[in-house]
Amino acid sequence: MKNILVLGGTGTTGRRIARRLTAAGHLVRTASRNGGDLRLDLDDPATWAPALDGAGAVYLLEPEVRPGPDRQERIPGLVAEAVAAGVGRLVLLSAYGVGEAGDGHPLKAAEQAVRGSGVEWTVLRPGWFAQNFSESFWLSGVLAGTLALPTGDGRTPFVDAEDIAEVAAVSLTEDGHSGRTYQLTGPRAIDVAEAVDLIATATGRTVRHLDLEPEAFVDRMVAEGTPADFARLLTDLLVDVREGRGGEVSDGVERALGRPPRSFETYVAEAAAAGCWS
C-alpha cells in the first residue's frame, strides 16, 4: 500500500492535513527539515529519495519565498524525482497572485513544474491565513495588545487553514480535482481592525490595529533583525492589502468541498476556546 507524503508535516497546513488523512485511515508520512516522520531538506537532494520511497501522492510546499540561490529549482527538482519514483498525484500549496507574478517568483516555477509533471496535479492558491493571528506572524502583536501592520483599512478574505487542509486532503485522495487550481479565501473580506476587534470580543483582551506607513514597517522589521530584502518583500505583500489587491472572495473552497468556507468568526471562536490567546 502506497503512502501519502506530506511536506511541512509539522506546519500550519501540513499537520492539519496529516491529521485528517490519518483519521480517514490513510497511510501518511510527514516530512520536514526538522521534525516529522522523515527528514526532507529541499536544500539537500540526498534526503529526497528516502522520503519519496513508497509514496503514491505528495503534498508540496515551498517554505522559503524570498529570493535565494537555486531556490526556484527546489520544487521542480523534487517534482521530477517524485514522478520518477512513481508518485502519481501532486498537490501544491501556492499563494494568491502567483498567476500574475513574474517568472522570478519561486512559486511560479513550482506551479509550472507541477502542471508539466505528467501526473495528476492540483494547485491551491490561498489568501492570507486566519491563523496568522493565532499561530505565527501576528500572534505576538495580538498578545501585546497592538498589532502594527501597514494595511490601512484594506480588506482581505482571510482563509481558515482548516479549509486549506480539507481541500488538500480531498485533492490527495479523491478523484475530480486533477488539473484544477483552487483560489481559497474566506466568505467575506474584512480589515485588520475588524479582525482584532473580533478577537478582542471573543477573548476579553484589549487589542487594536496600529496602521504603520510602509517604510516605517520596513524599518521596524530590520531593527528587529529581519533581513532588509525579506522585510521589503513582506511589506509589499501587506501593501497589496492596503491598496485593495487580493480583496476578492473566491469560490474555491465551495468548488472543492461542496460547502461554503468557514467564517473568520468561527475561526476566532475556536481559537479562543483552544486558548490560543490565553
Rank of each mutant, 00 (worst) to 15 (best):
P150Q: 09
R155S: 03
T47V: 08
F158C: 06
T13S: 02
N132D: 05
D160L: 09
Y267G: 05
F217Y: 13
T235G: 00
V170L: 13
S278P: 07
P214M: 14
S94E: 12
E166W: 01
D53S: 01
G68H: 09
G99P: 07
R74P: 01
A274K: 07
P50F: 13
A165G: 15
R180N: 04
S94N: 12
A130L: 13
L237Y: 14
T235H: 11
A169G: 14
R188L: 10
T181V: 05
S136V: 15
L147W: 05
H26R: 09
A256T: 04
D191V: 06
M221H: 14
R232L: 12
L52S: 14
I75T: 00
W128F: 11
L149T: 05
G179M: 02
G176T: 14
K2P: 15
A130V: 04
T146V: 15
L52P: 11
E162I: 12
A273K: 10
G36D: 03
L124I: 15
M1E: 12
V207Y: 06
P261K: 08
A82S: 07
V170P: 03
A49P: 09
A228L: 08
F158E: 01
M221Y: 06
E265A: 14
E64D: 02
R205P: 07
E135K: 13
R74H: 03
L198W: 07
R155N: 10
A23P: 13
G145F: 07
E254R: 11
R66P: 06
E243R: 10
G275L: 15
S278A: 15
T146H: 01
A189Y: 09
L7Y: 02
G275P: 14
E73M: 06
I75L: 02
L143S: 04
E174K: 11
V87F: 07
L60T: 06
T22F: 00
R115C: 00
V83T: 03
S32R: 11
E254A: 05
A165V: 13
G77S: 13
I190H: 02
D251G: 12
D53C: 09
A51F: 08
R205M: 10
V83W: 00
Y182R: 10
T156V: 12
L78G: 02
D70Q: 15
D229A: 01
D44E: 15
S117C: 02
T12Q: 14
L149I: 11
R245S: 02
